[in-house]
Design a protein around this nucleic acid. Structure first.
Length: 887
DNA sequence: ACTTTAACC
DNA sequence: CTAAGGTTAAAGT
């Protein structure tokens, strides 16, 4: 075994600069420029691969180079200001380095060269070999028998290593003479003057004669040519100054800890995550990983929470343990897969110091009821709704004195999506716990009960710990009321809805499926005939080739991978060929068949001869505060076309005598906009309960209500939508299929007529720029760090988000609050009716006929009176035997 | 695993 | 020159 140490030192600024100018201005889908970070990373991966460093560090410039600036105020004076597109990539580079665990060093007032010079000097003394990686020739001066400098050439993809030998061959100089070379010839990029008119050639000639600037200047008379002699005399001081500027300071005050530069392994998961976020797809494969490529191995979770040992218990020991539990108890429900239908393995119960694990034998022991219904204890879960729904299946109710770390964490940063339990734990406690291994149907996990218990116990204990932290963070962010009074109570409402499910008429569904199947097959045949060949109609690639290459139709839009065949493209093509209309119809029916008929049949669960679907509402996912629905998604059941709408016939009440009640808010987002903007014109429209799109049309097109035709109303509707979304003339022009200029005029006249809305849009963006977040009526927050980005795309996106989120998010707040209130009142009145679904602005109930009137009255009142705005809220209610008929 | 398309509000 | 808010699912590559 050799203990040879190899230290690689990267000149962070130089390599990032080089990469930026060498690569085209790549940006990812978020509009972040990433070319420099990408180039830097390519270089880093190459170094890891080729050089196999034992030690690695990166140096960055920090602040003004004070020493050089004092000597020479114009130092780097001609340099253009770093472009924003580059500046914003330095933090990305640092993030990448962090993910690899590679340290970077910066010292106020010093440049990266000086840091590298200082470290290599020290490294030499303790017997390390160093490789300096840079694009800056100045650093050749550091070369010795222990220091090699690698220079980038032509962009960054090619590099060249310089030892003393190569410097001799290339320049005929020793490494230290590089300073003299620069002293004579200067450096335009750093605004180092040197001797005017002396370039590399002359300088080398001079240095061949006399080895240093000082010697050259002492023997000016011997320089070739009168002119040159004159210049040397005239600019002798400049040469000395230039040499001084070019000399790397190898004594930067700096704590050098070579141990911290040691590079053995890195957290591949972390790096992957960052690469994915940055969209460095091609680099994912190039990560050095285990095996022959390198000795790098994925890091094991470093810290386990070893303070907690988990004791495996039986149900009859439970009572004894409950007695000893403190006021706050953490839980982890250990289950496989879906919380509604997956297998339950067991339950971990924990305090901050101790944990118990109760394995289940298929069913939950009834003794648990005592614990879950103990009002005196605060029960901490990661996902209360999941636990509550799972318990419901086993006829155990959960008391409401609970804390949900999932929901709390989500409210703290809703743009991040569903918080990962293990990330939340690490964030708040520093503990890096291992997730419980997930098995698949094919390959169940092999894990001992002891191990399972220990992992689950640690999570439960950690959850107690983080509950406190999350609670504090909610208080600090003014989010506690939103959490306590809205989201947490809603969790129980949603658990009821999920647990109950919605009845599906599967025979009706199958009939619809049969009908669709026939028509799809017929359409397919017709399309193949019209196209003259058979191909996979579901493949956009093959369809594009047939339409645009074979049939020669005019292709308009392109995607990354080829022709776009999306509906808006096809619609414009319909006049060119009858096949296009058929394809549109095929797509439409195919969508209904695969997503809805087959999807719902697959999701339906049978109980006796009744089929039900139990969606899961994700309450901790969207950036705006809306819910989402999965497995199956019941928030996107077709309605727009009659063909699709028919599917709503299959959603029926549990009892055929019962009814479906659908209650939807009328124009809730625009009403909220009217309220928060205070626009008098808009408020007036809603106070008089006018048709808002028609009203908008009269204003924008300056006509009387009678003169508004369907086209004008459609355009006005699109403008209203655009306003809610955070408008741009381009977006509106796309939507209405009109020239951008015209769309711009629509927007301008809209803002003229609704000046309050215009003011709101400006104000909310200003406020967002100050706070870097926006809020809704009930205090929900969404962080917008990009609102001050220099990148146009990122900033614009954040601005539109700033305009939209308070509207969409307040609408979400309002309906959620109505749900909690309605659910409460239904319970108080012991109604048999059930709340079934929420679809963003509508609520669906099933209801026995004798309760219909009472329920309608209750629902309307709670929905419309849930909060007092400066405009009335309006709910439209409809009753029918199926969801379809409740229209 | 990502891309395209399409369903909803 | 950039370029519409929030989602989920299926199918293809």
């Amino acid at each position: 075994m050799t203990d040879k140490k190899k230290l690689v030192l990267i000149d962070g600024n130089s390599i990032t600069y080089r990469a930026f100018f060498a690569l085209p201005p790549l940006s990812n889908s978020k509009g972040q420029y990433t070319n420099a970070a990408y180039g830097f990373t390519t270089m880093l991966l190459k170094l890891l691969q080729d050089e196999q460093p034992t030690h690695l560090m990166v140096a960055f410039d920090k602040g003004k180079a004070t020493v050089r600036q004092q000597i020479y105020a114009e130092y780097k004076g001609t340099r253009e200001k770093t472009p924003g597109e580059l500046r914003e990539q330095f933090p990305i580079v640092r993030e990448i380095l962090d993910s690899f665990g590679i340290p970077y060093v910066e010292v106020e007032g010093h440049e990266a060269d000086d840091i590298i010079g200082t470290i290599t000097q020290e490294a030499e003394q303790i017997g390390y070999d160093s490789l300096v990686v840079t694009g800056d020739k100045d650093l050749l001066q550091l070369v010795s028998d222990r220091v090699t400098t690698m220079l980038t050439r032509k962009g960054i993809s090619e590099t060249e290593k310089y030892t003393e030998k190569e410097i001799q061959e290339r320049y005929g100089l020793t490494p230290l003479q590089i300073i003299d070379l620069k002293g004579l010839m200067g450096d335009t990029s750093d605004n180092i003057p040197g001797i005017p008119g002396v370039g590399e050639k002359t300088a080398l000639k001079l240095l061949a004669q006399y080895p240093t600037v000082e010697e050259v200047l002492a023997h000016v008379d011997e320089a070739p040519g009168k002119k040159l002699q004159e210049k040397l005399r005239e600019h002798a001081d400049s040469a000395r100054l230039s040499k001084q500027l070019a000399t790397i300071n190898r004594a930067v005050p700096l704590d050098i800890d070579f141990e911290s530069y040691r590079f053995e392994s890195y957290d591949a998961g972390k790096v992957r995550e960052i690469f994915k976020a940055l969209e460095f797809k091609s680099l994912l494969d190039r990560l050095p990983e285990g095996g022959s490529e390198s000795e790098l191995v994925e890091q094991e979770p470093a810290v386990k929470q070893e303070a907690v040992t988990t004791q495996i218990i039986a149900a009859d020991e439970l009572a004894g343990i409950i007695e000893k539990l403190p006021a706050t108890v953490g839980f982890y429900l250990d289950l496989e897969g879906n919380y509604q239908f997956g297998d339950l393995h067991g339950l971990a119960i924990a305090t901050q110091e101790a944990a118990w694990y109760l394995p289940f034998d298929k069913t939950l022991p009834a003794e648990l009821g005592a614990l879950f219904q103990d009002q005196t204890k605060t029960k901490v879960f990661y996902d209360v709704k999941a636990v509550c729904t799972a318990l419901k299946k086993h006829d155990i109710d959960l008391d409401h004195n609970v804390f949900c770390t999932l929901l709390g964490s989500y409210l703290l940063s809703p743009s991040e999506g569903t918080p990962d339990l293990f990330e939340v734990i690490e964030h708040h406690s520093g503990w890096r716990l291992s997730p419980l291994p997930k098995g698949t149907a094919k390959k169940p996990v092999e894990i001992s009960l002891e191990e399972r218990a220990n992992l689950a116990g640690a999570v439960a204990a950690a959850n107690v710990h983080i509950a406190e932290k999350v609670g504090e963070a909610l208080e600090a962010g003014d989010l506690m009321a939103l959490y306590r009074d809205l989201e947490l109570p809603l969790s129980f409402v949603l658990a009821d809805m999920e647990g109950l499910g919605v009845r599906i008429d599967t025979s009706e569904l199958r009939e619809i499926g049969e009908n669709l199947k026939e028509r799809i097959e017929a359409l397919q045949k017709e399309i193949y005939e019209l196209a003259g060949s058979e191909f996979n109609l579901n493949s956009p690639k093959q369809l594009g080739e047939v339409l645009f290459d074979k049939l020669g139709l005019p292709a308009s839009k392109k995607t990354k991978t080829g022709y776009s065949t999306s509906a808006d493209v096809l619609e414009k093509l319909a006049e060119h060929s009858p096949v296009v209309q058929k394809i549109l119809e095929y797509r439409h029916l195919g969508k209904l068949q695969s997503t809805y008929v087959e999807g719902l049949l697959n999701a339906a669960r049978q109980n006796g001869d009744i089929f039900r679907v139990h969606t899961q509402f994700n309450q901790a996912l969207t950036a705006t505060g809306r819910l989402s629905s999965t497995e199956p998604n019941l928030q996107n059941i077709p309605i727009r076309t009659e063909e699709g709408r028919r599917l709503r016939h299959v959603f029926v009440p549990t009892d055929p005598e019962w009814k479906i009640l659908a209650a939807d808010y009328s124009q809730i987002e625009l009403r909220i906009l009217a309220h928060i903007s205070g626009d008098e014109n808009m408020i007036d429209a809603f106070v008089h309960d006018e048709d808002i799109h028609t009203r908008t049309a009269t204003q924008v097109f300056e006509v009387t209500p009678e003169e508004v035709d369907s086209n004008m109303r459609r355009a006005a509707k699109a403008v209203n939508f655009g306003i809610v979304y955070g408008i741009s003339d381009f977006g509106l022009s796309q939507n209405l299929n009109i020239p951008r200029k015209q769309a711009g005029q629509f927007i301008a006249s809209y803002f003229e007529k609704f000046p309050g809305v215009k003011r709101y849009m400006e104000d909310v963006v200003d406020q967002a720029r100050r706070d870097e977040y926006v809020t809704t009526l009930l205090g929900r927050k969404r962080h917008l760090p990009d609102i001050n980005a220099s990148n146009f795309n990122m900033r614009s996106f954040a601005e539109r988000t700033a305009m939209n989120t308070p509207i969409q998010g307040t609408a979400a707040d309002v309906i959620k609050k109505a749900m909690v209130n309605i659910h409460k009142e239904m319970q108080e009145r012991s109604l048999r009716a059930n709340m079934l679904l929420q679809v963003h602005d509508e609520l669906i109930f099933e209801c026995p006929p004798e309760e219909i009137e009472e329920l309608k009255e209750l629902v309307r009142r709670e929905m419309e009176q849930v909060t007092a705005l400066s405009v009335p809220l309006k709910a439209d209610l409809n009753v029918g035997d199926t969801w379809y008929e409740a229209k």
